[in-house]
């Protein structure tokens, strides 16, 4: 199975979603939105209706590594451009953007503000969109396909809607030619090829590429790269629109599922298939 990154990049005639003025066109800029999530191998918890994020088991959302890889490959193939890695989250979340810097991103932005705690997907998208605008916009915004904590996949299209750029979610293949971005994606019942003009937002799947591991050089270089910390006030965002204050849904109850009862484990001594058939029939499962 090949995991090809299809890259044919020639940045041309690129308008940016905000910022660029004629005669002073800055470098091509890709913003990668990443999330700091509880490690899926850890014992994840919900308290007071929110995911517990200070258990020390936080990590860069694995699926965002694919987003970083896509962005870095695009810039490498084009031979120009910069990659900004952006996150929204509590103090620890800075680890997620540091990992992005180690992989090769040029600079990092971390939006942290107490009022953000308890934000739902749309409020998070609002902060991300405001931060992208604050850093001067982007030619391309890249995200992962989902956060492995909430798994709602709502943020990418919401960010695109708020920035007023086209969204091409779930790219298994991504190609940029001139100012055209083309995505191949596989949905439940069909495969699609989508196209739009930059600036645009894409989300990439875990099929899109094989993310690189940060090497020693990358880890050392990351120490010298800038991490900008921003607050809601820096972004000019009203605190009542985000966090628990702006949440549109409220978790009333959360509890670990009880363990399955009456579990059976047999070692096959020649008749396990017959015993299994009897179990299925007895429990009216077939």
């Amino acid at each position: 199975m090949t995991r090809s990154i299809v890259v044919r990049v020639r940045w041309a005639n690129r308008p940016r979603c905000t910022g660029a003025s004629e005669g002073n066109v800055p470098d091509v800029k890709i913003v990668v939105c990443v999330k700091h999530v509880p490690d899926i191998q850890s014992d994840r918890q919900i308290a007071d209706g929110r995911t517990v994020r200070d258990g020390g088991d936080g990590t860069l959302n694995e699926l965002d590594e694919n987003a970083l890889e896509s962005a870095l490959s695009l810039v490498e193939a084009a031979g120009e451009g910069e990659v900004v890695v952006l996150t929204v989250g509590p103090d620890d979340a800075v680890d997620a953007v540091r990992k992005g810097l180690q992989m090769g991103a040029d600079e990092a932005v971390h939006v942290v503000d107490e009022a953000i705690a308890g934000s739902d997907a749309i409020a998070t998208a609002r902060v991300l969109a405001a931060a992208i605008t604050h850093v001067g916009g982007a030619d391309l915004v890249v995200t992962g396909m989902a956060g492995l904590d909430g798994l709602t996949s709502l943020v990418p299209a919401a960010v695109a809607a708020l920035l007023d750029v086209p969204a091409l979610p779930l790219a298994a293949q991504l190609e940029v030619t001139g100012s055209t971005v083309r995505v191949t994606r596989h949905l439940d019942h069909a495969s699609e090829v989508l196209e739009a003009q930059l600036p645009a937002l894409v989300s990439v799947t875990d099929q899109a590429n094989e993310p690189r591991y940060p090497n020693f050089k990358g880890i050392m270089a990351a120490r010298k790269k800038p991490v900008t910390t921003l607050t809601l006030a820096d972004l000019g965002l009203d605190a009542t629109l985000v966090g628990a204050a702006g949440a549109r849904t409220e978790v009333l109850e959360a509890a670990p599922r009880p363990a399955r009862e009456d579990r059976v484990l047999v070692t096959d001594t020649g008749d396990a298939g017959v015993r299994l058939a009897a179990y299925l029939v007895e429990n009216q499962l077939v």
Binding site: R260, D262, R263, V266, D271, A272, G273, V286
Partner: peptide, 27 residues
């Protein structure tokens, strides 16, 4: 997977699965 299985069989699928299929057909 055995930690979450209601019915687990430690065995070789190449013998267990065809036996299961045949038994279900018979039943």
């Amino acid at each position: 997977i055995f930690e979450i299985a209601d019915f687990g069989v430690v065995g070789d699928l190449t013998t267990v699965v065809p036996q299961l299929t045949a038994e279900l057909r018979r039943l």
